[in-house]
């Protein structure tokens, strides 16, 4: 049975095995972290392939620094590593200037919605302001609870709820203009 990031006891036990150089435990940890960490990385990169690369570097860092973790908040420790990796990626990506800032074609309002529904919503999520984007990705992609998002982001649960609420409002407004039949 796969280990969930929110299952603290099992995650701690799994990480203890990783610290003892149990390779199979590291593979399990990798699988357990994938959705949440990919969601987090995607909130920074806004590009799925880039998020995969950052996630990979997160896992390398987790492995290299596994012995520096002592008892405490493992989820917080993991997300701190992820945050640092994402910020490093941000700094490095600033060296490259896109040819056109708005080169991505805007979706056409007359396009058939059913076929492109998911990709349209995903695209609009990635266009959200950073705090909203992060909350939405961690909640819907990473399936983290409000409390876990608060722990990961270092903010209060109330603020997470506010961000989710405002993000949904923004998305609803945008999507309604693109797709009139969206509630």
């Amino acid at each position: 049975m796969p280990v969930s990031l929110t299952d603290r006891n099992r995650l701690d036990a799994l990480f203890a095995r990783v610290q003892a150089n149990d390779a199979s435990a590291f593979a399990l940890l990798h699988a357990a972290l994938a959705p949440q960490m990919m969601a987090y990385c995607l909130s920074f990169t806004r590009d799925f392939d880039a998020a995969e690369d950052v996630f990979q570097s997160v896992m390398v860092a987790v492995f290299e620094h596994r012995h520096s973790y002592n008892q405490g908040n493992l989820t917080g420790w993991l997300f701190t590593i992820a945050r640092n990796a994402c910020r490093t990626w941000e700094q490095q990506s600033r060296r490259f200037v896109p040819l056109e800032a708005d080169s991505e074609p805007a979706p056409e309002s007359s396009a058939p919605f059913d076929a492109d529904e998911i990709s349209l919503i995903q695209r609009e999520i990635l266009k959200l302001p950073a705090p909203f984007r992060s909350a939405v990705l961690l909640h819907y992609f990473g399936e983290l609870s409000v409390a876990d998002i608060a722990a990961a982001e270092g903010i209060s649960p109330s603020l997470v709820k506010i961000r989710l609420f405002r993000a949904r409002k923004l998305l609803a407004r945008t999507l309604r203009s693109l797709v009139p039949h969206l509630s």
Binding site: E117, I118, Q122, I125, V136, S183
Partner: peptide, 23 residues
């Protein structure tokens, strides 16, 4: 009529599938 909440969940599920497939 399409529900935003369920669409957000679908979008998240699609991302999860892609990330697990990629791995």
């Amino acid at each position: 009529m399409i529900d935003l909440e369920s669409n957000l969940r679908n979008a998240g599920a699609d991302w999860r599938k892609r990330s697990l497939d990629a791995i």
